[in-house]
Write a protein that binds this DNA or RNA. Structure first.
Length: 609
DNA sequence: TCATAAATTACAGACCTGAC
DNA sequence: GTCAGGTCTGTAATTTATGA
């Protein structure tokens, strides 16, 4: 608690506060001004490092939330406002600094000559930042400009020929949706009575939500076109395609033709094998200039914490050669099936986690990317794998020991460089006509080039890594999806049920859509109507269609009761349509409050009609 | 587990309102 | 004019989707 404040010598608070009639306000605001100025002048108090940081930032941060807490909202706001108005303080324009929770301030140029002290009246806590995010990454996020580096991929994304068959996708979504709705009605739960009804209602809401998200995704591709960027951390090339739901990917077309997806089978284990055979941590590795060694070197210097220790441990692992040979043999057949057999052979009792091919695949992902320390080492998947491949497990553990994302990043960078900067460049050179797209470890092209690209994919993978690979080919065709529709719908429902089970059924019933009970429409006729925030909230509702339709029928002074009635079920996909008709037909004046939501989510019974 | 991007929600900060 | 509370808007934070 300070007894006095340090303020600029020529600062006189009474100029700013004398017009306040109430003395407590005068004192409060004066105190606040002094407090703020003192904070600016005597910051940083201690270390050299603090001073450096201050220089770098070019101003003193003030967290408004703390200022208000310490001084009271009114005093803090008024004081800051007046100090800024007369340029006693100047706010630094520094976008995104402190994640917008604080702004940077410096003294105005007229107030930098000398300081004086003034007494403190209140016992006010210093402006500590302890509860607020202290360390903020001030480094700029430098994004690679993909078109400069990988024109062989971006040119197909930019030529406007990549599109999604939105009608077909929408039809598929609706089919799946209705199938799921039918299934939901037959669901038997352990819940009874009211709880059962609640569960189903909630489940239905999630179903609606999920499908409205899917519908949005197709619309996005159609309206916004494709977007792409390349990550600096894992070097992956992210595009609209990588974000798209797996099923919806079947409706993507290039130049009116469907796509063929060429997948590297068991790509992550394969890359692990490549890593284990190359041993970039060994002495020979140090001098090699292959891309794998470069990536490894670069990553170890980047995440250098404990990396020296890590390298020593890696060199000390014995018996690796023999294990890698055994590991490589698994790739002769289907890797996951072979691994599953091996594990079940040696560990017939702890078979859980390796029952099916799919389970084995998940288990492998888990083993690759989870960090196993202390009690986690007793988990069955880890026990089973490590008894079969102790040296490989040791290597993996060591790689994760410095930073737990090391192995994940390493494999992802390997995969990206291999696919994007090596293989696809090679293919593009050989077949310049072939459209090429990537989804991380998969390459997509059109059917007429599929065979050529597939062969080249395999061949250049082998040339670069020295490993034999298998490439799985699948035609992405919306029509063939209908055969597996029921199955997909079941899977989707399972996913949604899992999500629904996570939260307790009875929770949040009354808080479903709290913000939508009332909404203010800022202006109308040619001006902005629904704000984006209100709209995003409105359109996520399962009953999105109702809201806009309903607004159209509303008169001035419409009540919540009126709004609750007449709720037609009309599907509206495009928010813009709704906005426009809202402007034309809704007789509301600027700033008027109109009820948007005044109804509950229909229960299962009501839905049946 | 790891990664990224988009959607969605929460909240800061400025401004507004009506009683006093 | 203040006070106590509100709205509005843009952005940070979180969630949810994708990938492995």
């Amino acid at each position: 608690m300070k007894k006095e404040y340090t303020v600029p010598a020529n600062f006189d608070a009474s100029i700013y506060t004398s017009h306040f009639k109430r003395s407590d306000v005068r004192i409060g605001v004066t105190e606040a001004m002094h407090y703020i100025l003192d904070h600016i002048i005597s910051y940083p108090i201690d270390s050299e490092k603090g001073r450096d940081t201050l220089d770098k930032r070019g101003g003193v941060p003030i967290f408004t939330v703390l200022l208000r807490k310490n001084l009271g909202q009114r005093n803090a706001d008024k004081a800051l406002q007046m100090l800024l108005r007369d340029e006693v303080l100047v706010k630094k324009e520094a976008p995104s600094m402190f994640k917008k929770k604080a702004a940077l301030y410096v003294l105005g140029s007229a107030f930098t000559a000398g300081v004086k002290t003034v007494p403190s009246h209140k016992k006010t806590a210093p402006l500590q930042k302890k509860n607020v995010v202290e360390t903020v990454n001030l480094g700029e996020k430098d994004s690679l400009e993909p078109e400069d580096f990988i024109p062989h991929l971006t040119k197909f994304l930019k030529d406007g020929k990549l599109e999604i068959n939105a009608e077909a996708a929408d039809f598929y979504i609706q089919m799946a949706h209705s199938l799921i709705l039918a299934d939901v009605k037959q669901i038997e739960t352990t819940y009874t009575g009211k709880k059962k009804k609640e569960y189903k209602t909630k489940l239905l809401r999630n179903v609606h939500k999920t499908f409205s998200q899917y519908a949005d995704a197709t619309l996005r591709v159609k309206e916004k076109g494709v977007t792409f960027s390349r990550s600096t951390s894992n070097l992956r090339f992210n595009t609209t395609l990588t974000q798209l739901n797996r099923e919806l990917r079947n409706f993507v077309q290039y130049d009116g033709k469907p796509m063929v997806q060429l997948d590297l089978t068991a790509s992550q284990p394969m890359l692990l094998l490549y890593l284990l055979k190359s041993k970039p941590w060994s002495e020979e590795g140090k001098n090699s200039s292959s891309f794998l060694h470069n990536i490894f070197k670069h990553l170890t210097t980047q995440l250098k914490k404990k990396s020296y220790h890590m390298l020593c441990t890696l060199k000390g692992v014995s018996g690796l050669e023999e294990e890698v040979k055994r590991f490589e043999q698994l790739f002769e057949g289907d890797f996951y099936v072979s691994l599953q057999k091996e594990i079940l052979k040696s560990n017939p009792h702890s078979s859980s986690g390796f029952n099916t091919r799919q389970a084995t695949k998940s288990a492998v992902m888990y083993l690759l990317f989870e960090e196993f320390v202390s009690e986690k080492r007793s988990r069955s998947a880890y026990v089973a794998f490590s008894s079969l491949f102790p040296a490989i497990t040791k290597v993996m553990d060591t790689l994760k020991s410095g930073s737990k994302n090391f192995l994940a990043l390493l494999l992802q960078q390997l995969e990206s460089v291999l696919i994007i900067d090596k293989i696809t460049i090679h293919i593009a050179y050989k077949f310049p006509e072939a459209p090429l797209f990537t989804i991380h470890d998969a390459i997509l092209t059109t059917p007429e080039f599929a065979a050529l690209v597939k062969e080249e994919f395999k061949e250049s993978f082998t040339t670069i890594t020295g490993l034999k690979s298998q490439v799985k080919e699948s035609l992405l065709d919306g029509a063939s999806l209908n055969d597996t529709l029921e199955e997909s719908a079941k899977k989707e429902l399972e996913k949604i049920r899992k999500k629904t089970r996570k939260t307790k059924v009875s929770e949040k019933q009354d808080k479903m859509f709290p913000k939508l009970v009332q909404a203010k429409i800022p202006s109308w006729k040619g001006q902005t109507a629904l704000t984006t925030v209100v709209w995003t909230q409105a359109k996520t509702l399962p009953l999105q269609k109702i809201i806009a339709e309903h607004l159209n029928t509303l008169n001035i002074g419409g009540t919540k009761d009126k709004a609750t009635k007449a709720l037609p079920m009309v599907k509206i996909n495009n928010p813009l349509e709704v906005n426009e008709s809202l402007l034309k037909n809704t007789p509301v004046r600027s700033g008027q409050i109109v009820p948007i939501m005044g109804f509950d989510i229909p229960s299962v019974e009501e839905e049946e009609e």
